[in-house]
Amino acid sequence: MATVTLTPTKTPELMLEANSVTPDAFAGKNAEQIATLECREGKTHVTIGDFFTVSGNAGATAAETDIVIAGDCTRVKYIGSKMTAGTVTVNGNADMYVGGWMKGGKIHIKGNVDSFCGIAMEGGEILVDGRAQNHVGCAYRGDWRGMKGGTIRIKGDAGNDIGTFMLGGTIIIEGNAFIHVSTHAEGGTVIVKGNVDGRVGGQMVKGTIYVFGEIKFMMPGFKKVDKVDLEVDGTKATFDHYIGDLGERHPKSKGKTVFADLYLKA
């Protein structure tokens, strides 16, 4: 494994669109070549070298490349977006689209992330030590095929629109969430360890949600069916089992209607 370290040298005036900060773009390049990779700040073409000092050469392939950003990226978008392998670690915050459309590899953000973290993700792992803003693991605007696979773990709180149009994969919010969890989802799993304000599973067709805390406003389309003992993300507990969203369309399997499942810790 080869590690490339980027050290921020200045804060972008607008936002830096760093689509090229991925193991895939770095693979097979030395530090100098990496510094010349293109980024955008508004309509101006800039390079990674304009904003970071680069040390270390990348591995031959994405899988053999680790990227470490030794500093804050509050104004840097698209870190690790569309990556397929390798790792990215940010020792600070990151802006929008962290791991968006990601297919594989690992991202670890030690601070907070802004919105659209892991949107339309297909595989790999994202770990955020801090908070996330809105649209974690959500579909891109207008796309009814959302997150398909992979895992997103947010250790802090998250905003609204978690796993909208989700088809597969897992999202774990260890803190609280605001509104709209798994809206329109047709698969996948969302685990919220804290409380949720409301709109959990609205228009949901299939898939699973676990909530450990309280749901302040329950969707009227969810109906309690039974109580179950489960082990969820390493915790054993008793959950109230709800099915829904009864107002939404649902497919049939072997003559039985398939509903989405919501497990609320009893």
């Binding site: 409301g198 709109r199 609205g202 228009q203 406003f217 329950m218 969707m219 009227p220 389309g221 109906k223 969203d245 009864l246 107002g247 939404e248």
Partner: peptide, 20 residues
């Protein structure tokens, strides 16, 4: 701020299910 829940209730009733 609870329009979404109300729309869902309308739809649930329309599908013939009970609501709170």
């Amino acid at each position: 701020g609870h329009d979404y829940e109300l729309f869902d209730a309308f739809r649930t009733v329309l599908k013939g299910y009970d609501i709170p």
